[in-house]
Design a binder for these strands. Structure first.
Length: 462
RNA sequence: GCGCCCUUCGUCUAUCGGUUAGGACACCAGAUUUUCAUUCUGGGAAGAGGAGUUCGAUUCUCCUAGGGCGUACCA
């Protein structure tokens, strides 16, 4: 292909949020650029002014930012380059590689109907006709070859062949003079020096026609790679009912960006048996040719597994900030002593958490304000015998230093002194301390509660 | 209709003509255990179907089936 330094790009159309499939496309472009020491660029494909919104642009940038997939240059806005696009079309017109088409919408629809019935691509009669009035309303179409074939060398799928007769003469300039996507991508990718186009496989068909346009301009055709789409767990196209589509939703559901990067990279790409890998490993290993051809399904359980791993590895201070946001969103205030201890508490409680939402759940027993009612299960455990035993335990604990290790020892020796197993009073103790909310092992529960609060809760229940 | 793409355990994948078809998630069983969870050990689980090519096909070719994408003055 080319020995130029690699330039990749992500070119979203700002008509909505950043879809998870788009996020992965961006990630792959980013990884490949990093892998090769090249550049990763961003281009907003907003040639359709009707459907593009600034909110969508903001949402997409925000999503990419969160994911940590950042461009190496300022983003290009396609609509700002309309003059350049029009000039390029003039060149094509002058070279006889494009023509003005005066078909009305009605005529077009009729022609399309016929072409479809005959199973062939639509062809405008204006291909070889000169109009009596050249200034009449018209679009400019590409004049594609009628014979021969166009061959794509897809980096992922290999050779893909199209008969040129099956490719229609696409519109380059609309009736109002606005450039269309298929023209703009080619001109922009060329002008931006893009060497590798990595995009969703819904663009394979366009790739053939775009190749023809490159050739008409006499430009080098970039290397292309078409990624399979991401489907929902049931194999159908990802939609709302699958839980989430937008990367922002994944953030809200408590997933960490590094976990998303790992999971998304693993979805459709892999490096041997590696399941969990760092960003630098991903960058070192990523090859476009290793991307899998078939579409992958989103698997929430595996995402949860990966996220669990990264939560365990994450800095507790950072998790505390994240959890703070979650609690705030839930309207749960954090008392000052707890807020200060949050990183430490999270260190004690994060073991089983798969998301920051679950992490917040794990804190819920700490958030209770006493006095609180006990749940039915705990109440039933509180027989007179147990009550008496917990009362003795309370006295014992009053003299214990509230550190996890010493609490652990204290509980064990108390059980020994009582001549019973921990199972005899442990569940009741936990219930009394947590009010029935899930809580970790006893020593941790006591420790995170703190001596004052723990003894008070015990006293409340006895 | 026409064109193009895809098809290995439930899911993500490894294999690049010769393997007991490997790993991970999930699942099941057992162990540990002060709830839930965690952790540990073990287990079941796959080449869509049919023709070829070949000494030998998951791997190469073709057909069929199923799924997807495109077929716009959307991107």
């Amino acid at each position: 292909m080319s020995s130029r330094p690699v330039v990749t790009r992500f070119a979203p159309s700002p008509t909505g949020f950043l879809h998870i499939g788009g996020a992965r496309t961006a990630l792959f472009n980013f990884l490949y650029a990093r892998h090769t020491g090249g550049k990763f660029l961003l281009r907003v494909e907003d040639t359709d002014r009707e459907r593009s919104t600034p909110e969508a642009v903001a949402a997409i940038f925000e999503g990419l930012n969160w994911l940590g997939v950042t461009a190496d240059a300022e983003p290009v806005f396609q609509h700002q380059r309309a003059d350049r696009h029009r000039a390029a079309v003039e060149d094509l017109l002058a070279a006889g590689k494009a023509y003005r088409c005066y078909l009305t919408i009605e005529e077009l629809e009729k022609a399309r109907e016929i072409a479809r019935a005959e199973g062939r691509a639509i062809r405008s009669p204006w291909r070889d006709q000169t109009p009596s009035d050249p200034s009449a309303p018209h679009v400019v179409r590409f004049k594609g070859p009628l014979t021969g074939e166009t061959v794509l060398q897809d980096l992922i799928r290999g050779e893909i062949r199209f008969q040129n007769i099956d490719l229609d003469d696409l519109v380059l300039l609309r009736a109002d003079g606005a450039p269309t996507y298929n023209l703009a991508v080619v001109v922009d990718d060329h002008d931006m020096g893009v060497t590798h186009i990595i995009r969703g496989d819904d663009h394979i068909n366009n790739a053939a026609r775009q190749t023809l346009i490159y050739q008409a301009f006499g430009w080098e055709v970039p290397a292309m790679a078409h990624l399979p789409l991401i489907h929902g767990p049931d194999g159908a196209k990802l939609s709302k009912r699958h839980g989430a589509q937008a990367v922002g939703e994944f953030a809200d559901m408590g997933y960490l960006p590094e976990a998303m990067r790992n999971y998304l990279a693993r979805l459709g790409w892999g490096h041997g048996d590696s399941e969990i890998f760092s960003d630098s490993e991903a960058q070192a290993w990523f090859e476009v040719a290793d991307v899998v051809k078939s579409p992958a399904r989103l698997d929430w359980q595996k995402l949860g597994f990966i996220n669990h791993h990264y939560i365990q590895a994450a800095d507790n201070g950072r998790l505390a900030d994240l959890v703070g946001t979650v609690l705030q969103a839930r309207g749960e205030a954090l008392a000052e002593p707890l807020r200060q201890r949050l990183p430490e508490l999270i260190g004690c409680l994060k073991e089983g958490a798969k998301t920051t939402l679950e992490l917040a759940d794990a804190l819920s027993f700490l958030l209770k304000r006493r006095p609180f009612a006990l749940d039915a299960k705990t109440t039933s455990l509180l027989t007179d015998e147990t009550r008496a035993r917990l009362s003795r335990l309370r006295e014992t604990l009053a003299d214990v230093v509230f550190e996890r290790a010493s609490l652990e020892v204290a509980i064990r020796s108390f059980a020994e002194a009582e001549g019973v197993g921990i199972g005899k009073f442990g569940p009741a103790l936990r219930g009394v301390l947590s009010g029935g909310a899930p809580a970790p092992d006893l020593a941790t529960t006591l420790f995170t509660l703190g001596k004052t609060e723990a003894l008070a809760r015990l006293a409340d229940a006895l």
